[in-house]
């Protein structure tokens, strides 16, 4: 806990700290199947370099982002915004140790590479279209 006696804040809803509760969390689809991990978060637009209106509504989370972040985590920076897949916040149904979505992972653009590998490569290997016996 902080060792300074700052006033405690009160909250009207569930509190989430982005780095603590959201970044790198596993995301499960409605069936509990792993879909992707949260690599970043997109919030509604904030004017950069312009005075902020204190009476304006605060930004909200628009999307969870997933994408190729291994190299940028190692060497710094972040992938271009266009390389990140966006999963709208409205699909999130629960937040715990993992985040849960209310839709199937097949409906997400973020999992297209897995589906492509499954259908075009694994599926063409003899025995690749059914569970191991």
């Amino acid at each position: 806990m902080s060792d300074t006696d700052y006033p405690e804040e009160t909250y009207a809803g569930r509190v989430l700290d982005a780095d603590l509760h959201l970044f790198d969390r596993q995301v499960l689809d409605v069936d509990g199947e792993p879909a992707f991990a949260v690599d970043d978060i997109e919030i509604s637009d904030v004017p950069i370099g312009l005075p902020l209106d204190p009476a304006a509504p605060a930004p909200v989370i628009e999307s969870l982002l997933s994408g190729p972040v291994l190299a940028t985590r190692t060497f710094g920076g972040r992938p271009p915004s266009s390389r990140l897949e966006r999963i709208p916040w409205r699909h999130v149904s629960d937040i715990g140790t993992a985040l849960t979505l209310g839709i199937h992972s097949d409906e997400l653009d973020a999992t297209w590479t897995e589906r492509w590998v499954r259908d075009r490569i694994i599926g063409r290997i003899p025995g690749g279209r059914h569970d191991p016996e």
Binding site: Y11, A12, G13, R14, V15, L16, D17, A18, V60, I61, W89, R90, H91, V92, S93, D94, I95, G102
Partner: peptide
């Protein structure tokens, strides 16, 4: 820090 107390959505 975010607080889930905004406009109601489909799920959250």
């Amino acid at each position: 820090r975010f607080v889930i107390d905004g406009a109601p959505g489909q799920l959250l």
